[in-house]
Nucleic acid binder design. Structure first.
Lengths: 155, 155
DNA sequence: ACACAATAGTCAGTGCACTGAGTAACTCGG
DNA sequence: CCGAGTTACTCAGTGCACTGACTATTGTGT
């Protein structure tokens, strides 16, 4: 006994929400390009020539995951990856023409998909919904780095 | 140009939310047992002897994923898996003593973790937050099965 | 009883996500 | 200039998640 109601657990609901989103994405946007991959295309549309780590930061992918996503996109010819001549550690990423075209095409579809996804909510609820998720995520993200502020303390 | 603001995309935010949750879970609840695994323990606490497919349904895991999760839990001795004598296709699942103990222990910690996770929101906002996620997920889930009602139409 | 459909589960393949260990390249203090 | 630390990336290992193909069992209709 003493089982818990999972529908009051934000983690469980977050997982279900992502599953629901994945379902809509594959049917309404693309079966080839995933949502994180679109995020990378989008980041490189905004800032071409970004290095791999920074792209990961923009999209919310850690160093290992961004490497895999980038290698898939590059294998499909959607982006180019070249060593930074000024810093031999970095890889600079840039969309190919086809990458840019793919991004344009998917942008339209994602907009439609987001509308359908959020359709059960009123306009105010939609804004509130997004704001609440952002606040919770940002707060938890903040717990990761202990912040060590430029100490005004002793020594 | 014409890049999009990902912070207005519910899919992106859902993914970030789950990452944030994962971070808190591993630090505050357990590094061994994952959130989906806890879901399975919880379902079997509520309804011991459930078959594998139904457990997956309760927790929101498809047939392939529930198989993997169950095999991990069974390998660690947290549950037993036996053929249903009445239906040779089914496996019936039941927690071991250690499985039940683990569930009890983690229940306390998940409650604490959920508090921390939702701490940035007021009590009303928390309730609203959970309700909104549920509504969006349920609605998208409903789009999966086309519903084909017991047709009153022509033969 | 026998063929056909439906159901429970497995398996292979792909993709996201995190950790920890390792490598190459840069930076900074002496 | 040179050694120590930092940074960007890779690689191996684990785990969740979905699809599509396959097997075994059960259930149904005639």
């Amino acid at each position: 006994m003493s089982a818990v109601d999972l529908t009051t657990h934000p983690g469980h609901l977050a997982r279900r929400l992502q599953q629901a989103h994945h379902l809509l994405w594959t049917t309404m946007v693309s079966e080839e390009i995933t949502s994180p991959q679109f995020g990378v295309l989008n980041a490189l549309t905004a800032e071409p020539g970004l290095d791999q780590r920074t792209v990961g930061e923009r999209v919310g992918l850690d160093r290992s995951t961004i490497a895999e996503v980038v290698s898939r996109l590059s294998r499909r010819g959607l982006l180019d990856k070249v060593r930074d001549p000024g810093d031999g550690r970095r890889f600079l990423l840039r969309l190919t023409d086809e990458g840019a075209r793919t991004h344009r095409k998917l942008t339209v579809r994602t907009a439609r998909m987001n509308q359908v996804f959020l359709a059960p909510l009123s306009a105010e609820e939609q804004a509130l919904f997004l704001a609440l998720i952002r606040r919770v995520s940002d707060a938890a993200e903040g717990l990761r780095a202990p912040e060590e502020p430029a100490s005004t303390g002793p020594s």
